[in-house]
Simulated assay, not measured.
Amino acid sequence: MPAVKVPNGAAAAALASDLIGTLPDELLHHVLSFLPAQQAMRTCVLARRWLDLWKSSTGLRIVGADGKKKRASFGEVREFVDHLLRHRGGSPLETFESRFNGLSDADVPRLNLWIQHALACRAQVLRLNIVWDPAATARIRPDDAPLVSQHLTRLELHGVLFKDKFANFSCCPSLISSRSLEHLSICRTSFSYGRRIRIHAPNLVTLRLHVHYGRTPVLETASPLLWAVVAVHDGSADLCRQFYSGNCYDGTCRGCRNIRNDSSCVLLQGLSQAKNLGLAAGTETFIFRRDVQWCLTFSMLKTLVLNENWCVPNVDALASVLEHSPVLEELFLQLFCKGPRYKVQMKGRFNPKELPSTISPHLKRVEVKCEAVDETVLKVLKFLSKLNICFSFKE
């Protein structure tokens, strides 16, 4: 049998180039979409056929100045991106992604133009990731050019400072509205302190929302969410010293002043059709407790994860949610845990047939995780014991 000759490095590269060269343009455009914009553009030197392929790449990923860094300062890539957009024209986009360190006020209009270019090219996925740099003179404020699109299916915003006109999909002030949107993630953001941004996404499948600053946005439409994770932190504007419902009537309480003009449910109405739900409240945030008073039914909820502020200073909010979750199967309480870390894990033992009539007969699993079994944890365990759910330490 004759020996098979293995091509050397140069020959192998040439062979690979020839093989790739047989692929149709549409497939090459898709392959190029996974490269950082700088690297995709450099393929123009490979051969004559590659001269303009990068212009029709279906993805535009703006990262480091050399195309390798995870993030770049805006100044490092400004001229390159301007040049790239000028030459690629209006070729359709599937994904637009940008990751930057903090911006200056002068940079914001330029970034707005880039975003508008992506939306004009009917981008389906839009990711903005802005690192809050204390040395920067401004965070991103895309308020001069609101997002207007009915093509997006995934929107991920990290480190964005919202204004009243931002994220406007239907030309209505202060409104996120999109029938095409299926996946929404908003983290490390600062919402408006003036009026609440409204989110209308009737076909949303997944939601991740972390409110760190400003007023909690309103979820207008209850969609059949596969899963949702929503956290309202103590930096938000919805704080009250009495913690319960924002009705302490203290003239100096900013949170109560904000809530008095709200006549509807803020978050839980929009989450009432979720199948899997994680909710975390800050120590003084009252939005969830206020929403619980609407006695909403979570008719599709199978898995529920709550943090300690749903259980202290009393368990009324926890009790209400349990009573209005008729098909609940799993309940997880994470009490005073630092992120995913915990020292104690307890698993509930119960007979579903012996649960009170107000609790889902489908309940199969109850777990409590905590740093230590203190007085607060014991209060929660005592409440659950009244529901005929007992606990022991899990090995």
Rank of each mutant, 00 (worst) to 15 (best):
Tyr193Ile: 05
Leu35Asp: 03
Asp316Val: 13
Phe332Tyr: 12
Lys394Arg: 09
Pro173Asn: 08
Arg188Thr: 10
Gly255Phe: 00
Pro326Tyr: 02
Leu111Val: 14
Val380Asn: 02
His362Glu: 14
Lys347Pro: 04
Ser17Gln: 12
Gln273Leu: 15
Arg49Ile: 05
Pro92Phe: 00
Leu306His: 03
Thr43Gln: 08
Arg42Ile: 02
Cys265Glu: 01
Pro142Glu: 11
Leu19Gln: 10
Asp374Ile: 08
Ser149Met: 05
Arg88Tyr: 01
Pro142Thr: 12
Ile259Gln: 07
Glu308Ser: 11
Leu60Arg: 02
Gly270Trp: 03
Val373Arg: 07
Ile140Met: 10
Leu363Trp: 01
Phe383Asp: 03
Asn258His: 15
Ala135Met: 11
Leu85Cys: 03
Cys44Arg: 05
Val321Gln: 03
Lys353Val: 11
His324Leu: 09
Asp52Ile: 04
Cys265Lys: 00
Asp374Tyr: 07
Glu220Cys: 12
Ile140Ala: 14
Phe286Glu: 07
Val292Ile: 14
Pro217Ala: 04
Trp132Ser: 11
Leu128Met: 07
Glu26Val: 12
Thr285His: 02
Asp143Pro: 00
Thr189Phe: 09
Cys171His: 10
Leu328His: 00
Pro326Met: 08
Glu375Asn: 09
Ser360Trp: 04
Leu161Cys: 13
Gln38Val: 15
Phe162Leu: 12
Pro313Asp: 09
Leu384Ala: 09
Ala317Lys: 00
Leu93Gly: 03
Ala10His: 04
Val232Gln: 01
Ser149Gly: 04
Leu279Glu: 05
Asp144Arg: 12
Gln273Ala: 15
Gly75Asn: 10
Lys275Met: 13
Ala372Ile: 09
Val366Trp: 01
Phe100Ser: 06
Val368Asp: 07
Ala222Phe: 01
Trp227Ala: 04
Asp291Arg: 00
Ala40His: 02
Arg88Ile: 06
Leu204Asn: 00
Gln273Lys: 15
Lys68Gln: 14
Phe391Leu: 06
Arg196Trp: 02
Gly339Glu: 05
Pro134Ser: 13
Leu175Tyr: 06
Ala16Met: 11
Ser180Ala: 14
Asn314Ala: 11
Arg78Glu: 12
Gln269Gly: 12
Arg260Pro: 01
Gly21Met: 06
Thr283Arg: 12
Gly194Glu: 14
Leu304Tyr: 00
Phe243Val: 15
Arg48Val: 07
Leu46Asn: 01
Gly75Tyr: 10
Phe74Thr: 01
Arg188His: 14
Glu97Cys: 14
Lys275Thr: 14
Ala145Val: 09
Ile359Cys: 10
Ala106Leu: 06
Asp18Ile: 12
Ser180Trp: 02
Asn351Met: 10
Asp250Lys: 08
Lys68Arg: 12
Val63Met: 10
Cys172Ile: 13
Gly21Cys: 06
Ala37Thr: 13
His200Cys: 14
Pro340Ile: 02
Phe166Asp: 08
Pro361Arg: 03
Leu60Gln: 04
Ser73Gln: 10
Ser236Trp: 00
Arg88Val: 04
Val321Arg: 00
Asp133Ser: 13
Lys70Trp: 11
Ser98Leu: 15
Leu378Asn: 11
Trp294Tyr: 15
Gly246Asn: 05
Pro326Trp: 01
His362Arg: 12
Ile115Val: 15
Ala167Glu: 08
Gly159His: 06
Gly278Gln: 08
Asp107Tyr: 00
Arg78Asn: 09
Ile287Asn: 06
Ala135Tyr: 10
Ala123Glu: 03
Asn112Gly: 15
Ser360Arg: 06
Phe332Lys: 09
Ala47Arg: 03
Leu46Phe: 01
Glu371Arg: 05
His183Tyr: 12
Pro92Asp: 02
Lys70Glu: 15
